[in-house]
């Protein structure tokens, strides 16, 4: 539990503080304009980084499972439910 709380706290500091900082730093000086391409594509690449990280964990798990728990795997053994009525 402590671990989760600490983890969320660290994530919170890492993510929220710079974001809030950025939000209030945005000025409105004439002649200097926000580059919308930079903002939007930056958001996109950030999300893709996270998506591909999570995706590789999820699909890696599924692929490993499919390989390890197939019935033809040398270490496959009957589950504890086989032969019972569940």
């Amino acid at each position: 539990m402590k671990f989760i709380f600490g983890f969320l706290l660290i994530i919170g500091v890492l993510v929220i503080v710079p974001a809030v900082d950025f939000a209030f730093a945005a000025g409105d000086e004439p002649g200097k304009y926000l580059d919308r391409r930079a903002v939007i594509w930056n958001l996109f690449y950030k999300m893709m980084t996270v998506a591909f990280t999570v995706g590789s964990v999820v699909s890696g798990t599924i692929i490993w499972q499919v390989w390890r728990f197939r019935e033809s795997h040398p270490k496959a053994k009957p589950t504890s439910y086989e032969g019972t009525d569940w």
Partner: peptide, 10 residues
């Protein structure tokens, strides 16, 4: 949060 912030800017 990230999307909200970016949308606010653009």
């Amino acid at each position: 949060a990230e999307a909200w912030e970016a949308e606010r800017l653009v």
